[in-house]
Amino acid sequence: MEFNAIYVIVVREFKKFIRERSRLFSAIARPLLWLFIVGGGMSRIVPAGEGVSYIQFIFPGILGLTILFSSIFSSISIIWDKEFGFMKEILVAPVSRFSVVVGKATSGMIISTIQAVIVLGLFPFIGLQLSFVQFFSAVLICALLGFTIASFGILLASYYESYESFSVIMNFIVMPMFFLSGAMYPVKLLPSVLKIAAKANPLTYGIDALRNVILPMETGRMSSDFSIYSDVLIIIAIAVVFVFVGGKAFERKQ
């Protein structure tokens, strides 16, 4: 492990994130729109479950959305780096591709966790009560999920060379991932084909883990779909696979 390299890759991403205020602003605005406008509207027609209202039900999903977008954004920056040449500076350095992937995934994790914590702090406004342990566990899960999604994004980025592919990734990968993650509706109520797709989606387990931690009181149809242990285990396993495959994908020479 080349800690100096990982450290400096993270510092660079973080500095750029802080300098780009509009990015932080839109990263916070997006979940707010979903939570209060979509959630607020939908809760008029969706009856409450056994203990939580619809807006409370989608709260973990909105956290997942925040992480999904900011982690993918962060790792997709690799495509920008390729386009503007900076990637070459990294690729000719005596640093293993594995460290580059870990560095980038860690950056995505930190940046998306910061944003998720801000959104998580809104819990009193939707009538939730969270203990310190619940809050802290939710942050941990957010970080874990952030790392996994970021490593997935790196894998994607390693196959795309140009900026134009960005909208393809957004429309055909990121949005379907969100809609098929149980963020807006319980996976157990999905038709069986969609259920299979949802189960193949790493985001599903992250959101389910958050739901386990944040909404333990729900017992009915809006409850979590899997146990917290299987959720966490699956997220970690997926992260390991993505980091490994991502590192290999970067390694290849033409």
């Binding site: 080349e2 450290y7 400096v8 750029k16 040449g85 070459k88 500076e89 990294i90 350095a93």
Partner: peptide, 30 residues
């Protein structure tokens, strides 16, 4: 480890300062 390169197209990070670009390099090369 034995080489330094100046590519035809710039490979600097334009959103970092000159010093930060050099610092990044120094860390990367240990």
């Amino acid at each position: 480890k034995s080489i330094g390169i100046v590519f035809q197209d710039s490979s600097l990070d334009k959103d970092l300062t000159a010093r930060e670009n050099l610092l990044f390099h120094a860390y990367l090369y240990n």
